[in-house]
Design a protein around this nucleic acid. Structure first.
Lengths: 150, 150
DNA sequence: TCTAGTTACTTTGATATCAAAGCAATATGA
DNA sequence: TCATATTGCTTTGATATCAAAGTAACTAGA
């Protein structure tokens, strides 16, 4: 007789968590959307996350990591790692801020802009297709709901 | 003169994507919720994803990987990897299905159940706290919206 | 000035994530 | 029954993710 058993948690507890857990619901939806946009952006060699990061670089002043991380809901160390493949491909550069040498600013390159001009059009098409799959007011409802998670 | 430039994408395009992209909004919210539940479940050595997986094992018959993956919105290969640390800790076992030896069923162990009994209470408390941070009808709105993403 | 504290980021080590390719078992059709 | 196709899962190689601990640079207060 080994450890494997059938003596499980109460069925109602399991169903309750399954049906109400916002964290599970969010992870599930995030994975599905990630796969969808990863596939759409594949011709550009970009993942959904890389696309979002590249979009966020388009600011009058190249933003530092410390400003991008909260915007993306991301830990700064994740961003440090995420920058590497993009820098390696020459899509962005990392420059120390002259006014504060601790801070490092991410600047999109010409190549990055050229790639993004095309990628944005694919994003538009894919997002339109996504929304057309959904009930009328679901997109806005979702946007409001997701924005409410701090 | 290097590659770095200031010739960026149209400002309106950037703002449009930033404010409407459901994929970005979902990743951002998923990261925030993941961190929150990871922190709450840390005393049990469980991540939010491990918790959800363990909950899903509580079924009359131990489910095969191929049934769990779609439930979690996950690629089967991700699940194969996710199982390893949990099996190593003795929280679940992997058994070949006697009726189809390709299929592998995940069975929660006694230890797994014991751990989950406590973890579920922490989940309850954390989820209640999460919902109390939100506007009245936001949780249900979000659940419906997230469930609408296929 | 120092010096202590804070901030911005990186490194480390672990798990998470996927697509693609691979393997073995099952199912199907001739 | 044999060959082919399909199915269920795993492996591989790459990026993603985090917390914790580390480093360097800045700040504030004595």
């Amino acid at each position: 007789m080994n450890d494997a058993i059938s003596d499980i948690l109460p069925r109602e507890t399991v169903l309750h968590i399954r049906d109400t857990c916002l964290c599970l619901a969010a992870q599930r939806a995030a994975r599905r959307l990630a796969r969808r946009f990863d596939a759409a952006l594949k011709p550009f060699g970009l993942t959904n996350g890389q696309f979002s990061l590249m979009v966020a670089l388009n600011q009058p002043e190249p933003p530092p990591i410390g400003r991008l991380a909260p915007f993306l809901g991301m830990n700064p160390s994740t961003l440090t790692a995420a920058v590497k493949p993009l820098a390696r491909r020459g899509l962005l550069t990392v420059e120390p801020d002259p006014d504060d040498r601790r801070s490092r600013r991410l600047r999109i390159t010409r190549e990055g802009v050229a790639l993004m001009r095309e990628a944005v059009e694919v994003w538009r098409a894919e997002h339109a297709a996504l929304e057309s799959d959904m009930d009328e007011d679901l997109p806005d409802t979702l946007r409001q709901g997701l924005a409410g998670i701090k």
